[in-house]
Design a protein around this nucleic acid. Structure first.
Lengths: 236, 236
DNA sequence: AAAGAAACCGGCAAGGGTGCCTGTTTTCAC
DNA sequence: GTGAAAACAGGCACCCTTGCCGGTTTCTTT
């Protein structure tokens, strides 16, 4: 079942690049260099920011010519769009691999904790750094936003709907699950960006606080105490 | 007393630009155009990102010439450094104004809640958007990082130390106060950046959760229950 | 008022980036 | 095997940005 879910989520985020399995040698070669270019572009993105993601540097990194670059990606934005798709796909892939191997044989009560830790690990990856760069650049580049936002929302939709599908036992507390997910995603992004300023020590404390909030929500939701739609001064 | 604290915090973050009160007309004029240039630079930063912060556009925006630009800021990085200082100063200023007017005559128990709300408001400002842009750009631009990180850490140090100074009644729970502050800063940054993806509705839920966590920490810390240095499975 | 300093102006060369375009080589179809 | 098509190479023109420089105007000093 787990692999089914994994495959379904990955398929939903599959970049157009990799959609069809190529048969002819030419197509294989094409896909290979496209992937190489996108991969180099992600390196640029992480090392030099979105404005450092330039067609020249990418071509140079891969050793291919600017002509080849232009053949696969006519404009810089075409390349950026491919990068967006790949980054989301790889983030999904890496998280699922990590999470599913960590969750193997775990108790139900530990699931939230395990996934929180897996998410924090995923935040520390190169692909997440690229994601942050794109997310911030999209705030002030409407062309990029047109590519980024739909992809981000699709990622979110897949994430939420599969979470719901995977935990039928939480049926009555789906709203809580979504809230926990949003909370974890939100807090960890802020944590990553503030890490250089507040330092590792204080970041670890915040991280523990986040984990405890998640655990508390887990317990309260399991007991059905928490009503998120109303203002209950007694609850959390 | 409140104004004393406010003045002390602002002084600690005062940009070198505005340090000395100018007497001669020439100096006044100089300061005025410097500020105009920095202000225009912040506009560029917010509207087009750090890479859009260009000496040409800034000069054009203010109506002054590139020569004047170069007279006040020899290089692009000089301008960026001035922008960093101004952004932190203005953030501090705006938050203090908002917070101190909101806190006037409030009960002690409501302080955390009031400051959390004030912080969220501060996150929605233009200066905070500029701050985010700088913080992310500094991750991949070591020249900018050399200017940004010290300023950010100074802001943090002033923030924390003044918070401690202002709440002597919390003496025994300063660690909790710092944690609450870090948590609020962290969560709200992540919330702001995820807002376009998750939407206003879910963001509001997360925001309420954050507020409740703060309230809970407030109550627990006031009761002296929470021991942050050890692993207490009973507490939060 | 005259000399000097500070604020301001506009142009120059160099470098880098983008998009496009003409060829060349490799692979595919018939 | 031959023509078509796809992958790849490298050059050209245009634009933007940067840093700097000589020249001009506006204060300030004495």
């Amino acid at each position: 079942m787990a692999t089914t879910m994994q495959q379904r989520m990955l398929d939903a985020m599959l970049p157009a690049d990799l959609a069809a399995e190529p048969e002819r040698w030419q197509q294989r070669k094409s896909v290979r260099t496209r992937v190489r270019l996108v991969e180099a572009a992600i390196d640029c993105l992480v090392e030099e920011g979105y404005s450092g993601l330039t067609t020249q540097k990418v071509a140079e990194r891969t050793g291919s010519s600017r002509g080849a670059m232009h053949h696969h990606f006519a404009t810089r934005m075409d390349l950026a769009a491919a990068v967006v798709e790949h980054v989301f796909y790889r983030r999904m892939q890496a998280f699922l691999d990590d999470y599913l191997s960590a969750v193997a044989g775990a108790r139900d009560e530990a699931l939230f904790e395990i996934s929180t830790e897996a998410y924090w690990r995923s935040v520390q990856t190169r692909d997440y750094a690229a994601y942050v760069e794109l997310a911030v650049a999209a705030r002030s580049d409407s062309d990029l936003e047109r590519v980024f936002l739909p992809a981000a929302q699709r990622f979110d939709a897949v994430w939420i709907s599969e979470m719901i599908e995977s935990f039928p036992q939480w049926q009555a507390r789906w709203e809580t699950m979504k809230l926990v997910s949003d909370f974890v995603v939100t807090a960890h992004m802020g944590l990553m960006l503030n890490l250089p300023v507040i330092g590792a020590k204080r970041a670890a404390l915040v991280r523990r606080l986040v984990a405890r909030v998640v655990a508390l929500l887990h317990a309260e939701a399991a007991a059905g105490i928490l009503d998120l739609e109303e203002n209950n001064p007694t609850g959390l």
